[in-house]
């Protein structure tokens, strides 16, 4: 089903990344996307641009400098007091008019709360396609963005294209793409985009913001070692075996989605497509089958260890080390062995 790109879209060029800048912080997903966007832009021989929206000239220029060190060639800055806190209406307006003015062929956003709220509104206004929660982005032979995401059912992936509309939009969840390394002292071109917004016209007002107090589970995504349990553990009590092992290793713990649905673990401990994406140095999965939605959340781990009674379990297709045995028996033993080895070393040290 090949369709011709309509004339009005042929001038659309360049890859854009929306930079999430809130409460003085750049969301890491935006930098991850710059790394990914750089690869796409190089393949297409076009520029990579960062789209920076907010309030305060100095701060936004500092953000621009950061994006240059992560690979952006250009930074579009929209600076206005109305844009100080994220709100759907003014952000959608600014982004859509930026797109209409400078016509990018690809636009990437983080699949965060902010990104999901914004992307759907922008894509609908522009009447273009938006692929959600992609795990892989590539350019095909016809300059088209091939956006791959898991499909429901637990074992398949699908590749989605936006053939005859521009820009081609996609969201990607945090930690799915690797964090690129920053290059010092890179420079780029800054384009200040004039904004015509009045606070009186804004229907929704931000009355207050209550920041999260450091949430311990929020660290899961960044932990060096993660131990997780699945339905194979049989009872919620057995999750303690997972927590014990994680504790001995100084790591964090989580589980598959059914455990959240059963109330064995809190939602913020879910690992996978609709939970946290993790990139630890060591991931130990106990009693988890390895469905695609789980797999995409852990594939970035350096070393994956799977404990599962079923030698045919799909998790062994992507684990590095596997063992077919009862996790309920093995976990406490494993905890003991790790504890002993570390204790021996403590004495030696």
């Amino acid at each position: 089903m090949k369709r011709e790109l309509p004339e009005r879209f042929r001038s659309y060029r360049h890859v854009w990344v929306f930079i999430e800048f809130e409460h003085g912080r750049i969301h890491p997903v935006s930098l991850e996307l710059l790394g990914e966007g750089r690869k796409l832009a190089d393949q297409l021989h076009v520029d990579l641009a960062a789209v920076i929206v907010g309030s305060g000239r100095a701060a936004l220029h500092e953000v621009a400098a950061t994006t240059f060190s992560y690979g952006a060639d250009v930074a579009y800055i929209a600076d206005d007091p109305v844009l100080a806190d994220y709100r759907n209406e003014p952000y959608t307006r600014v982004i859509t008019s930026l797109v209409e003015t400078y016509q990018p062929e690809i636009m990437l956003l983080g699949a965060t709360v902010l990104g999901r709220d914004l992307a759907g509104a922008v894509a609908t206004t522009l009447k273009t396609g938006l692929t959600a929660d992609c795990t892989e982005l590539a350019i095909d032979g016809e300059r088209s963005l091939a956006a791959t995401r898991p499909t429901f059912g637990g074992s398949l992936l699908c590749t989605i294209h936006t053939l005859n509309y521009r820009p081609q939009m996609a969201t990607v969840r945090p930690r799915v793409m690797a964090m690129p390394t920053a290059q010092e002292r890179q420079s780029g071109r800054i384009v200040e985009f004039p904004v015509d917004l009045r606070e009186e016209d804004m229907i929704t007002k931000v009355l207050d913001f209550l920041p999260d107090t450091a949430n311990e589970a929020a660290q899961l995504a960044f932990a060096d070692i993660v131990v997780a349990g699945g339905l194979g553990l049989r009872t919620s009590e057995n999750m303690q075996l997972v927590r014990d092992l994680a504790q001995v290793l100084g790591g964090d713990w989580g589980g598959s989605r059914p455990l959240v649905q059963k109330g064995w673990i809190p939602a913020e401990r879910q690992i996978g497509q609709t939970g946290k994406t993790i990139r630890p140095r060591l991931y130990i999965a106990a009693g988890i089958s390895g469905a695609i939605q789980h797999r995409v959340g852990v594939e970035g781990a350096d070393l994956i260890v799977a404990i599962n009674t079923d030698p045919q379990a799909p998790i062994f297709d992507f684990a590095d080390i596997g063992i077919t045995t009862d996790a309920i028996t093995l976990l406490p033993t494993l905890t003991r062995v790790f504890r002993q080895r570390l204790a021996v070393n403590r004495m030696a040290g």
């Binding site: 999430e20 809130e22 409460h23 912080r25 969301h27 806190d85 994220y86 709100r87 965060t112 709360v113 902010l114 229907i203 929704t204 007002k205 931000v206 009355l207 207050d208 913001f209 209550l210 920041p211 999260d212």
Partner: peptide, 12 residues
């Protein structure tokens, strides 16, 4: 619910 906290919003 935002990514870093809770927004209190008034709308119409």
């Amino acid at each position: 619910r935002g990514d870093h906290g809770v927004q209190v919003l008034r709308s119409r």
